[in-house]
């Protein structure tokens, strides 16, 4: 019998709990705002939420929605009959980790409600959770390897990472990830002598890969994808202390690389700085999905640091397929030129 599917909206929702309860996990990554449910949210509204709503509007099975933002709460308003709204704390401290742990236990109980006794049994459920933690840790490791392979091979595009993340990560399809790594390893290693400015792409949610393609096509090298549709989903490990597995999950997920929605500014900035220095980036492109407060304030904060440190930063705003918009092309090209000039001056 095929497993029931459970859809989610956020990388802070621990996958392990869902798969251990016997569900097939589906992180919803829409490609565009569909035709359904368009009239339910205003047009001047978060594109991801609108696209997400369109994708799940006819959904009959359960959903777990993270209480990420006002826009996601509006999606919950519409589908609250089948959804569980998970309160994800914005700050990381003992009180919040404990609270999050309680919420995760609540989800686990909810998911196991109609399951057979064998699965519900505490010992077997813990064993299943341990197994899922190991499985996902291995999958995360492979995703990191894939990213590293992309980084060392200048023929490989970061859009491969997006494809694998969307199609294989949540399915723990390790073979497919390995295949992708192998494929990149076989790419030609002949170095191009031209200089390609190295840029980080940052966002709350990068909607799709069109911007990556556009940036790479314009002659820049993407060296980091700071987005949930990117490295933030897999660039961490769940601690292997299985004595208190729920606390472990709560702590590991809350402590992963921060989403702009979180409010620990020092940690967020430290992570951005790490990316800049470890990946040797020349600049940062910040993509704000239209009408996203989280990204707007996060950009303002990072921009201030960048300005103080004379680090080039470009703000882009858009909806789905932003990379295909002519206006953005001009700005990306101009940014590349300015980076080239800056690098040449340094040399």
């Amino acid at each position: 019998m095929s497993k029931a599917t459970l859809k989610i909206n956020c990388s802070y929702i621990p996958s392990e709990i869902i798969t251990a309860a016997g569900y097939q996990l589906n992180r919803v990554w829409p490609n565009n705002i569909g035709s359904k449910g368009r009239d339910l949210l205003p047009t001047n509204y978060c594109p991801y939420s609108r696209a997400f709503l369109s994708e799940i509007i006819d959904e009959k099975d359960k959903l777990i929605l993270a209480n990420s933002c006002d826009a996601m709460r509006r999606v919950y308003d519409i589908k609250n009959n089948i959804s569980y709204l998970l309160q994800v704390p914005r700050k990381i401290n003992k009180t919040n980790i404990n609270f999050y742990k309680e919420k995760l236990i609540e989800i686990q109980n909810l998911l196991l409600k109609n399951k057979d006794k064998q699965l519900k049994n505490e010992i077997s459920q813990n064993k299943l959770l341990e197994k899922e933690v190991m499985e996902f840790n291995e999958t995360r490791e492979l995703m990191k390897k894939l990213r590293d392979e992309i980084l060392i091979n200048d023929k490989a595009s970061f859009s491969i990472l997006v494809n694998v993340l969307k199609n294989n990560y949540y399915k723990k399809d390790k073979e497919k990830i390995k295949k992708a790594i192998k494929k990149i390893k076989n790419y030609s290693k002949i170095k191009n002598n031209d200089y390609y400015p190295k840029v980080i792409i940052s966002s709350s949610c990068l909607l799709d890969k069109s911007l990556i393609k556009k940036v790479e096509k314009s002659g820049m090298e993407v060296v980091a994808l700071d987005s949930c549709l990117g490295e933030r989903t897999f660039d961490f490990e769940v601690d292997k202390n299985y004595d208190n597995i729920m606390e472990n999950l709560a702590s590991s997920y809350l402590n992963k690389k921060l989403c702009p929605r979180m409010m620990d500014l020092n940690k967020r900035l430290a992570e951005i700085k790490d990316l800049v220095f470890n990946r040797n980036a020349d600049g940062l492109i910040y993509f704000i999905p239209k009408f996203c407060d989280q990204s707007s304030y996060d950009f303002k904060f990072i921009k201030e640091w960048a300005q103080k440190n004379n680090f080039p930063i470009l703000k882009l705003e858009g909806e789905y397929n932003a990379g295909q918009k002519g206006q953005l092309t001009t700005r990306i090209e101009a940014f590349k030129e300015s980076l080239k000039i800056a690098v040449n001056n340094e040399v």
Binding site: P42, R74, I78, F291
Partner: peptide, 18 residues
């Protein structure tokens, strides 16, 4: 009254209307 830029009120007003 749907305030420009207010995601909670702006987003819910259409639903309340419905």
């Amino acid at each position: 009254f749907s305030q420009w830029g207010c995601r909670q009120n702006n987003g819910r007003m259409g639903m309340l209307k419905k």
